[in-house]
């Protein structure tokens, strides 16, 4: 993204720095890690765990305060899972789909709401964990593993019949689907979040006050939508693997 570097000449504001493709590397042995992603993801995880502990510390029959909020979140992800997987199948998959939604949602919103860029790093900058391709690919691959696991545990080797089920002519496409699913999942999320952060950053760079606010609000909206889409598609893929063919295709965005 060298093409954006000319914008650095405009920087008169500490908020308005733009660094893309630079990472704050941690090295463990000979492994390289993106430190900024881990820092923000730990904060996201800490938020989620704290909210969960606070919500379940003193469970009441009539929910109040944080318990009510978290019950609303739970009912929301439960509805996602239930809509995709059906009343009978959704329970074992609720933690996976729910955690996907909550992690992506809180990550995205943390990128939009927490002013990460005020915190100085030696290199790179803090941003939403989901704006790093590693995170989204990790989540998408886990989704692939999840639906393979769902298919095998439900139907054993009969799971492979879905590749030749309507007609063997579609075999290449069916195999290709297993690659396009994680690819589209990960790039959709990554692209949306990174693009949103870049747009906001560029606008802040050009006009620091007020003008970026509508774009920021739009960013909040798309962030939430992307979390919903990711969780919904994960549920749809798992459902498809569990049910075999005959289930309608859920494809969106």
């Amino acid at each position: 993204m060298q093409m954006l570097s000319f914008l650095d000449t405009f920087t008169a504001f500490p908020l308005a720095e733009l660094e893309v493709g630079k990472h704050f590397y941690w090295e463990i042995g000979n492994l390289k890690l993106h430190g900024q992603v881990f820092i923000t993801s730990w904060i996201v995880i800490a938020i989620l765990l704290t909210a969960s502990v606070l919500a379940t510390r003193n469970i009441q029959r009539v929910p109040q305060g944080i318990q009510n909020v978290m019950e609303y979140a739970l009912e929301f992800v439960r509805d996602i899972a239930k809509n995709q997987l059906g009343e009978k199948e959704y329970r074992p998959w609720l933690p996976f789909i729910g955690t996907l939604f909550l992690f992506i949602f809180v990550s995205n919103w943390s990128g939009a709401l927490i002013p990460w860029r005020l915190i100085e790093l030696p290199e790179g900058e803090l941003a939403a964990p989901t704006s790093d391709i590693n995170t989204t690919v990790a989540l998408a691959l886990l989704t692939s593993l999840a639906y393979f696991y769902a298919g095998f545990s439900k139907r054993g080797l009969g799971y492979f019949s879905k590749y030749v089920e309507p007609t063997p002519i579609l075999l290449p496409i069916a195999i290709l689907e297993d690659f396009t699913k994680p690819l589209s999942l990960s790039f959709r999320l990554f692209g949306n979040i990174l693009a949103d952060e870049l747009v906001v950053a560029v606008l802040v760079l050009l006009v620091p006050l007020f003008v970026p606010i509508p774009v920021m609000l739009l960013g909040l909206f798309t962030s939430a939508i992307q979390a919903l889409v990711f969780a919904t598609l994960a549920g749809a893929y798992i459902h498809e693997a569990v049910e075999g063919h005959g289930g309608e295709e859920h494809e969106a965005h």
């Binding site: 493709g21 990472h23 463990i28 492994l31 390289k32 890690l33 993106h34 992603v37 881990f38 993801s41 995880i45 989620l48 765990l49 969960s52 933690p95 996976f96 729910g98 955690t99 909550l102 992690f103 964990p129 790093d132 391709i133 590693n134 995170t135 690919v137 990790a138 989540l139 691959l141 886990l142």
Partner: peptide
């Protein structure tokens, strides 16, 4: 640039899932 962030993130996510569960 893919590196060790990917598997560690996956493991971290699984741990988060277990804890949240």
């Amino acid at each position: 640039d893919f590196d060790a962030t990917l598997p560690l993130m996956a493991i971290q996510f699984l741990i988060l899932m277990v804890l949240l569960n």
